[in-house]
Amino acid sequence: MTLTRAAAGLLLASLGCFMAFLALSRAYWLFLHPRFAWLTLAAGLLLALLGLLLALDGRRRVSLSACLALLVFLPLAWLAAIQAESGGFAPGIPGMSPATDPGPPTLRLDGTDYLRLNPAELLILTDKEGGPDGRALTTEGFVLRTPQMDAAGEVALVRLVINCCFADALAAGVRVRVADPAALTPGAWLRVAGRLAPAPGLSGPPPAVPGVIATVLAENGVFLAEVIEALPESEQPYVFEIRSEPPFAY
């Protein structure tokens, strides 16, 4: 019994250490919204303390099944964390998303200044009352395709929006009219610049992203691309903040 209790306490402390470690690493935001990092850190440190106290408290009895659950979970969590931060665990700042410079709020392409926004903000702008206003806009995201969209000469450009954690993520974005959808690989990152135009809603089911609950695309318009540029995979693929008017959280 003493051995089981000690093992249970150490497993609990390990979970606490893992949570604290994750909250202090750059991999955190791949699992949860950065605003929860302090909460995870505090809970992790407290759990580590509780685990040690439990291991030393001779009055407590613990069940073997509880230990087994942690024995299954901890390696799985470690695997996920390693995959998320395959480049090594660089230190992060709790509560902050990765420190990438977003650059200026507008981008000059082919002599035109385009206002930058993320695909979820573009979605809101498209479906806003009054419809698209013809502004020059640019956004970045990854490509999704369906046979129906291919036939309509469109692809979807989306990013994952994290409200709380990755398990609650939604893919949000707009349809982009392009010359040849088949030339664009699903999952490839693009920058598109152009203007919104009114259009009927999507015909057929929305494209799916593995592991993501739903894909939400603007219903009242389509993005007419004037410039399309291929990008390397974004260092910050998720959207944690959405604004409905400038300055946008691009």
Binding site: F31, T40, A43, F73, A77, Q83, C165
Partner: peptide
């Protein structure tokens, strides 16, 4: 693994 970890870390 990522989804399971996210849920547990969020709820813990």
């Amino acid at each position: 693994a990522t989804i399971a970890t996210a849920i547990v870390i969020e709820a813990a």
